[in-house]
Amino acid sequence: MEFVLLGFSDTPNLQWILFGVFLLIYLTILVCNSIIILITKIDPVLHTPMYFFLGHFSFLEICYVTVILPRMLVDLWTQKGRISFLACATQMCFFLMLGGTECLLLAVMAYDRYVAICNPLHYALVMNHKVCSQLVAASWITAVPAVIGETGLIFSLPFCTSHMINHFFCDIPPVLKLACGDTFVNDIAFYVVAVAVVFIMVPFLLIVVSYGKIISNILKLTSARGRSKAFSTCSSHLTVVVLFYGTAIITYLQPKPDQYEEMGKLISIFYTILIPTLNPIIYTLRNKDIMMALRKVLAQLLV
């Protein structure tokens, strides 16, 4: 059994333009995130918990887009969109796994900023290398069992209405639309919502609480320069959080499923492709340490 990803088949005249644009975006994501990983490894100034997490986040972004973009580029090139049942399930599993990991890692990064700003005297003790490694490992591992179980339940449903997926990758809402079943479908929907709450809403609430305490602490500072410096260390991460969670919540927690048909592809392009493209730019342009490290690397290469 196989599915057909309709993707952008409704705009056949733009297939090659879209292929060129998405290929350029993919290469940009690979290069920019690889540069961040490299400079956080080789520059001693960046050997801190904040940049340790940023390096892992950049690696996660590469994995995240690689689950979606290469397959989409092949479909745009061949203009067929055929994907096997197993490949579709595998793509969904890895996409959800990496998405859940990103939610958890963003929460860990928010906690790191909370400790740095609200408890600076104990920061080195609390956020030691062992703790940082454990937090990263927990972010990667926690989502695995739930996502495998969720994907298994979804693809154990009978698909008898159609094999055409009106999307450019195997995401939950468009795949569930093709399933036919009675109470089991409702059980699946409940499970999906439960997982969305656990891996989207819970980390989001932790981030909100962390930044609530951070902002409260910053406002208590008497020095305007101190407040500006504290805000600048959080602004990049906060921007990424707002962009990622805003689109994810709209996609998976929207009240009317019909809205997905109208705006689903556009929103999905935003949080699966455009945000990972913007993230390296946000973190580099708004971070003096990374810009200085990048200049050092470029200077060494040009010598």
Rank of each mutant, 00 (worst) to 15 (best):
I249P: 05
T247H: 04
F204E: 00
L278K: 00
L219N: 15
K213N: 13
I267H: 05
F190W: 14
T284Q: 13
T247C: 11
E262N: 09
V193Q: 14
V208K: 13
S232I: 04
T277C: 08
F204P: 03
S236Y: 00
Y211C: 02
S235R: 14
H237E: 05
A196C: 15
F231I: 10
I281T: 07
K213S: 11
T239R: 01
Y245A: 03
C234W: 07
T233P: 06
Y245D: 06
S210N: 07
Y260G: 03
Y252A: 02
S216H: 12
E262G: 03
I249Q: 02
C234H: 08
R227P: 04
T277Q: 02
F244E: 04
A224Q: 12
S268E: 10
L285E: 01
L243Q: 02
K256H: 07
E262L: 09
I282Q: 02
L219E: 15
V209Q: 07
Y245V: 02
A230Q: 09
I282Y: 05
I269E: 01
K265M: 09
I275G: 04
T233H: 06
I200N: 13
A224H: 12
V242M: 01
S216W: 11
K229Y: 00
E261I: 06
E261N: 12
L221N: 12
I218W: 13
S235K: 14
S210W: 08
I281W: 08
F204Q: 03
A230Y: 10
I214M: 14
T284F: 09
F270D: 02
S236F: 06
L266T: 09
I273E: 06
A194H: 06
I207L: 01
S223L: 04
L274H: 05
L285I: 06
P255C: 00
Y271A: 03
T233D: 09
N217S: 15
G264E: 13
F199H: 09
Y252C: 00
L238F: 15
S223H: 07
A196R: 12
L238P: 13
I282M: 02
L221Y: 15
G226P: 15
P203G: 12
I215A: 13
E261L: 10
S223Y: 06
M263D: 13
L238G: 08
V198K: 15
L205E: 08
E262P: 02
P276N: 01
T277A: 07
K213P: 05
L221A: 11
F204R: 00
F199Y: 14
F231A: 02
L206D: 01
A248Y: 05
I281L: 09
V197N: 13
L221K: 15
T251W: 02
L253E: 05
S268L: 00
V240D: 06
Y211S: 08
I282H: 06
L253A: 09
Y252N: 08
I269D: 02
T239D: 05
S236E: 08
S236L: 01
R225C: 00
L205S: 03
L205C: 11
V195W: 00
Y260M: 04
F270H: 04
L243M: 12
S228V: 05
Y271W: 14
V242L: 11
S228T: 07
Y283F: 10
A230C: 08
F199M: 05
V192A: 05
I207C: 02
I269L: 12
I267L: 14
S268M: 11
G212H: 13
G226D: 12
V193I: 11
A230F: 08
I249C: 01
S235C: 03
L205F: 10
A194N: 12
L243N: 01
S236P: 14
L266A: 09
K213V: 10
P203V: 14
L274S: 03
